[in-house]
Design a protein around this nucleic acid. Structure first.
Lengths: 194, 194
DNA sequence: GTAAGTTTCAAACACTTGTTTGTGTCCGGT
DNA sequence: ACCGGACACAAACAAGTGTTTGAAACTTAC
């Protein structure tokens, strides 16, 4: 239905599709930037809460968390919070991609301020799972993995269309997610040991 | 100097920085889309020619090309064609990122039509280096690797600023490139064997 | 030197963007 | 019943976009 992003979609398109008046956005949120930030909050706040909850749960049942454990923890949290079948996750990931690629410095700053701590907390759990990595390795490899996920999700429809055009059959979401997590895990594991 | 992309930069900004008249773009190129496509052609045409040349050279000296060989072939080609020290490569990668994330369907179509064959040719060399991968694996893993590179390059300045903010020192370009290629190689290698 | 063709340039055009404005409508409290 | 705050709505606003225009300035050829 909506094959464009969000930040690049006009308020008239958004409000038109939602069936509300154009001025309602500025009345309730103040600005378009604030609206987008509210969308992020609505998605990320319950997600980081779920991740934190699972993180402490898993820490008590297992004494050592593997990279695969931590990655699956993320995907499972997204599934549980925002539903597996819906396209909310991919739509949001596309939006997250825009936050990085488009010149939306306000969003990157906002995300960093509000969720930087949670991100660092997650990375702290990732550190003992990658014993050979230095601090610089850890930073870059996690951002490589993050970039892989963001790029894939933000171009999800286009990539799937290309794949279908090549092979003739539509790739199931589960397959893509499993390939993606395997790719990220392999990159995180082996990049430092060469 | 220019911290925004290209497609999201107005013609008035571009022509103003270049010191030329606004109407010159439409006179010489016809439209802004054609201008952007011309930029891509100016960058990619010599690059794919260099890659093709190195591909046949390497094929004759070695009987089996490894993933690492093929990745280094790419980076070396970029360095040789467009210079190592300059920021042309990162500027272009940012532009390439926009071609995917922004709703610039015309650019994706243009790139696919003009360079799809060269891409397939490169992937064909990658296939024997990854014996365990199916066709679907190959498609998705190569696009994962492509996405990692595009995301990293298109957010190069922001990531480096974050890293400098964390560690206190600026990461050398060579280090990032070596970490990036190692990450991509590990992902390509090991993602299929689990 | 003049004519024809090409390129430059400022101005205007048509359009879209996010935001604001002023009026109207609803609804709960006294 | 009526007042007052909260909301909805159409219209206008200011600023920005890519593109077109028409007249100058230059270049080339005869």
């Amino acid at each position: 239905m909506r094959n464009r992003g969000f930040a690049e979609t006009s308020l008239r398109t958004i409000t038109g599709a939602a069936g509300v008046n154009l001025a309602a956005v500025n009345y309730h949120f103040g600005s378009k930037k604030a609206l987008i930030q509210a969308v992020f909050v609505r998605f990320l706040d319950p997600l980081v809460a779920e991740v934190e909850r699972r993180l402490t749960d898993m820490q008590q049942s297992k004494d050592h968390l593997s990279v695969e454990d931590l990655l699956q923890l993320l995907t499972q949290s997204v599934y549980d919070i925002h539903g597996k079948g819906s396209n909310r996750a991919t739509a949001f990931m596309r939006l997250l991609g825009l936050a990085y690629t488009q010149s939306q410095a306000h969003l990157r700053r906002f995300i960093g301020e509000r969720y930087g701590e949670a991100f660092q907390h997650y990375v702290a759990h990732l550190k003992p799972a990658l014993p050979g990595a230095t601090a610089a390795d850890l930073f870059w490899h996690t951002h490589f993995a993050l970039g892989t996920a963001i790029f894939t999700m933000s171009n999800f429809d286009a990539l799937r269309a290309m794949s279908e055009n090549d092979t003739g059959s539509r790739t199931p979401v589960d397959f893509i997610v499993s390939r993606l997590t395997a790719f990220m895990a392999a990159g995180l594991h082996n990049a430092a040991h060469e």
